[in-house]
Design a binder for these strands. Structure first.
Lengths: 170, 170
DNA sequence: AAGATACGTCAACATGACTGACGTATCTTC
DNA sequence: GAAGATACGTCAGTCATGTTGACGTATCTT
């Protein structure tokens, strides 16, 4: 490591020469925070004989009804084959239905059935409890900071896709 | 949902009746932020023939040299069998060495070799670039907010263990 | 009519998790 | 000093979820 402190230029607060410990703290909290949040629903999922992959699909279909298979593939960033298995399971359990697209009949539009919606809401409930309580104890200002940092982790190329989840409600 | 707004009690800002959209926003950003951060090192790991599981072990051993196998198991929250495979790989590639404990000779203390340390630093470099830039674009205040929310996601029972990563340097 | 696209599906394989059982060395306790 | 608890390693088998590459069918675009 170069001796940064002896440098003649004064570094701005937004410098890339961030203290290692602040970065490690972020890496660790992100790891533990993320895993503990997702752990919250494992038991519930196991009861249904489903896994995390199923929940991710369920979640995004709930979030954006009439999502196409292609769009879901982009969101999940997995292969067609992997997603195929997951959707097949969700179909067999009558949690998801598809209909062909109106503007483009090659597309399949995904939507939750009533029981799929009920399950997704139960799972969301668990996530919500955990995250609400974290939001509450940190305060509103912390929450917006939390969002901003995470937004900065999403590459420019993906950012629109993520933001669109909040807009394209059918 | 009950009609909360007609309730006689006024809800504090820290209410558990958080708006669904704020929760979904957090869930999504956490998912995309976490996955995009970890994606940053996949290519580098693949070059070495290692996977994410190896990196997690490498990371924590770097973070807390002379960590015992048992403590690493608690941090990773996986089974002995799973960790065993990972440590065996790291051993074979001369990235990690163990020595038996001094106070308790049953324990094995884990430490990175020079090449292990070099690799971990390269990988950390990737994470650091991504996270520093997210920190920088969000600002210092956002960063502390980010930390606070994530801390709230770690259950009380695990919190000490996570915080101790920043203290128990040998 | 030709080519591109959306989706499904085949076979084969890799990674990283799991369970449950058992063995050995070492520490603790009576 | 013996009995039991603990730290670690390991066996065998299984599961969930990801991968590649190829190919088929329906449908849209040009």
């Amino acid at each position: 490591m170069t001796d940064v402190s002896s440098s003649a230029v004064s570094l701005p607060a937004s410098s890339l020469f961030m203290r290692e410990d602040e970065i490690r703290r972020g890496v660790e909290l992100l790891y533990f925070g993320y895993t503990r949040l997702t752990n919250a629903i494992d038991q519930e999922l196991a009861k249904q004989g489903l896994g995390r992959a199923h929940h991710r699909a369920l979640y995004f279909i709930a979030r954006q009804p009439d999502l196409t298979v292609g769009d879901l593939l982009k969101l999940l960033a997995i292969t067609k084959q992997s997603l195929g298995r997951v959707l097949k399971d969700l179909h067999e359990r009558d949690l998801v239905i598809t209909k062909s697209g109106i503007v483009d009949r090659r597309q399949k539009l995904l939507r939750l059935t009533d029981s799929g919606s009920k399950l997704e809401q139960e799972l969301f409930q668990q996530l919500s409890q955990k995250l609400s309580s974290a939001y509450a104890s940190a305060g509103q200002e912390a929450v917006t900071g939390f969002w901003h940092v995470l937004e900065g982790l999403v590459p420019e190329a993906d950012r629109q896709m993520v933001f669109d989840l909040r807009k394209e409600r059918t």
